[in-house]
Design a protein around this nucleic acid. Structure first.
Lengths: 335, 335
DNA sequence: AACTCTACCTGAATCGATTCAAGCTCGTTT
DNA sequence: AAACGAGCTTGAATCGATTCAGGTAGAGTT
């Protein structure tokens, strides 16, 4: 019942070899054959059997993407960028969201290996390097997304988090804020420490005196943001910071929620607020959030492009691609 | 270099047939053989070549999921549910987000057909029925997600939108609201008209007199919500509705943004606000949104389960699975 | 001892696309 | 006229897992 290349060959009155050539190197085939084969394909509604193709030619037309926080719209955008690039190469994306669960991670890595994906993109939160090394040992090109890792021997595509932290705090200082709190954690996350480092640099290099306080959180979630905000508000009013820099937009959204009291919004007049990621929902918040934008789609596109290149040339040397962050000013910092 | 079943057979001192049997019907093999083969697999780090498997046995270990609005967290959750179910069956998900672009849609359907996916889940916004029928004609089980379609001949998994609309408006009425506006559109979207129908039913069946006004929007986006909110606020104050029912949470978030004026939030005191979908970001808004929850993960799980069943039994009759919606009360309706 | 059964194992054939050595045609060169 | 080469086509071999007809060993039965 399913239509094979043999059926097409019969219909077009040529050999299977010729049909295959029409499909893969049309310029080595007479235009008459191309014509007849194309028409036969059309008439029969033939589509290539990718399994057979993969088996014989060893080419794979899928790339795996493992995301460790599928609820975060930032990763959604990254996936979208990767998708765009992939579909222009006729490649489909195998998607796996692990929610930071190591067992799910193993499941996906095995599944993707069975599928013989052409390459793997992974956005790691925790420590998966040993797992990954083993994975790559089976010959599959692997690129880290949103995680700079010069040491690990993997290529990566990410944003300069330190620069982003600096941008955020410089912006707050320019807006006249002097008592700034950095809200974020845990501190074993590279993203967090980098953003804080940038914030510190900006505070120290400022022309005026700036206090930078650290308010630690247990995770980068909305709930943790709400909790941190509530803690801040229990202080006597004169000890409130006049600006908050949240390590990501989810935290910032949580903070914003806490900073509504009695129908009155403390943002931006009493307290300025800036986040990180430029999450579309942060832009759409009751008070639109200022944020540090990561070029998420571009990250996805680039990561996919690199993984394909590495798959094509296994000798290639891992390279770190770092994009600059961008300050986006909205109402939450008075802009 | 890559390890095949033959290598495993040699290492374990058995034939390839036996290795295959260990993999596929271990109970027909002596426990000693199972033991030795398993160990050989372990030692060699063998993983099945899915291409060969698919080619010979015709079984596919992937399911395609085409989402038409990848930015909407609701679909994210649905995908997550499908993923959970899929990975417990050793199945991986091929993901495609079309952003309502028909050409991308065609690209993905072709790609998935080449991959010979075991089945297809699709969350359609516009009209793709003819496309889909052709797709299914090639023998691939197809299930619609979030779209009831008794007429189309496809199975579907969705939520009773009419009941959801009714729940929302009944809740507003119970809260003492009498001048309710339904915000949503366009009206060729089934979800919109169903939710409105439910709202109308609730208003008409109420014990008290309730006015239900319709505020049309061009799309279900945050921006359209902002615009609709702004339009409402230009009216003289006494003509404001006292409650808004948004056809989804994105609209509701936009409305919420418009209902902040001069640092003062009109929600919920002046105007109550309820959305639809129970988007996690709506729950985390400055004023947490009341909403009508769709059991999104369950929808995904169920859709995947059904598509596998249909793939296993091509004679099966399309069935419509409808889940009940659930009212979630938060601050935005005074709750 | 001959026969039957059960429990396992074996290995060749198979799926469909690709590849490539070999072949064919025809025009050009010597 | 023979030799050559360009341009194109052919079809058998191949990739690796699965399947299944056929085979073997050993226990049980008569």
């Amino acid at each position: 019942m399913p239509i094979s290349i043999r059926d097409v060959a019969v219909r077009a009155g040529v050999s299977v070899g010729t049909v295959s050539n029409v499909l893969n190197r049309p310029d080595e085939v007479s235009s008459e054959s191309v014509e007849r084969v194309t028409q036969a394909i059309e008439e029969l509604g033939y589509v290539r059997n990718d399994a057979a193709r993969k088996l014989r030619a060893g080419v794979s037309t899928t790339v795996g993407f493992v995301v460790l926080d599928g609820q975060n719209p930032f990763y959604n955008d990254v996936v979208r960028g990767a998708e765009d690039e992939a579909s222009s190469h006729g490649i489909a994306i195998l998607y796996g969201n692990t929610d930071d669960d190591p067992s799910r991670e193993k499941v996906y890595l095995d599944l993707f290996r069975e599928q013989q994906v052409r390459g793997l993109l992974i956005a790691p939160y925790g420590d998966v390097m040993t797992q990954l090394r083993r994975f790559r040992a089976s010959g599959i090109a692997t690129v880290l997304v949103d995680r700079f890792s010069a040491d690990s021997g993997f290529s990566s595509v990410s944003v300069d988090s330190v620069a982003g932290g600096r941008l955020a705090v410089e912006h707050l200082i320019e807006g006249g804020r002097r008592r700034i709190a950095f809200v974020g954690g845990p501190f074993d996350m590279r993203q967090v420490t980098d953003r804080l480092a940038g914030a510190r640099a900006a505070a120290e290099n400022a022309a005026v005196h700036v206090e930078l306080e650290v308010v630690p959180t247990a995770a980068m979630t909305v709930d943790e943001g709400v909790a941190a905000g509530a803690r801040l508000l229990t202080r006597p009013r004169r000890e409130w910071p006049d600006a908050l820099f949240a390590a990501n937009d989810l935290l910032a959204l949580g903070l914003l929620q806490s900073l509504v009291s009695g129908g009155r919004l403390l943002v931006p007049d009493e307290i300025a607020l800036i986040g990180f990621d430029d999450n579309p929902f942060a832009a759409a918040a009751a008070v639109p959030l200022s944020s540090i934008r990561q070029p998420s789609r571009m990250i996805g596109r680039t990561a996919l492009r690199i993984v394909l290149e590495e798959a094509a040339d296994p000798e290639s040397i891992p390279r770190q691609t770092v994009f600059p962050p961008e300050l986006i000013v909205r109402s939450s910092t008075g802009g």
